[in-house]
């Protein structure tokens, strides 16, 4: 519980600081992508899904999206958690409810424009309570071409589709 409180206050202060920073520093340009994650018809609890940006060497750079806000379970997504635990930065999107088998979710993900077509990877990591964990349920290179195609996952994700948000 202690960790949870520190995590919570940590998140909160980070949010405060980063919102202050943002107002002074516009940062790199972001591109909005509409992203649909369709899950397979598995049985069990809702899936935790984390979308991260990795560099050429497969190191975590940024967390783009987290589905599931119950931090109790975050360390069941170990690879991401080992990065996030140390380097807790602001996440653009965290949604509360997890999505169960057979369902889909549509989210907007902000991609940093300078990382597209620059050798970076997009990773979809999934975990379900009491079931197998997939560190790379779906992973592909972040290229304009890849963003246009439907990508199939190998774990709980059946496929992911992305299109630029309509603005």
């Amino acid at each position: 519980m202690k960790r949870k409180i520190t995590l919570f206050t940590g998140l909160f202060s980070l949010l405060l600081i980063s919102s202050l920073l943002v107002s002074f520093n516009p940062g790199p340009t972001k591109v909005s992508y509409k992203c649909m994650i369709q899950l397979t018809n598995y049985n069990g609890h809702g899936a935790y899904v984390v979308v991260s940006l990795l560099d050429k060497d497969g190191k975590y750079v940024e967390t783009l999206y987290v589905q599931g806000d119950d931090e109790e379970w975050y360390h069941d997504i170990p690879e991401w958690w080992s990065f996030y635990e140390k380097d807790q930065s602001d996440i653009d999107a965290i949604t509360g409810a997890t999505v169960g088998g057979g369902q889909r979710t549509i989210q907007v993900i902000q991609l940093p424009a300078d990382k597209i077509n620059a050798g970076y990877q997009l990773r979809f990591e999934t975990a379900v309570e009491d079931q197998k964990y997939y560190a790379d349920d779906l992973q592909f290179e972040l290229t304009t071409e890849n963003l246009k195609t439907k990508k199939e996952g190998k774990g709980y994700i059946r496929y992911v589709r992305m299109i630029p948000a309509s603005s």
Partner: peptide, 8 residues
């Protein structure tokens, strides 16, 4: 939804 700036 998505607003005019492309943010959800």
């Amino acid at each position: 939804g998505i607003d005019a700036e492309g943010a959800s």
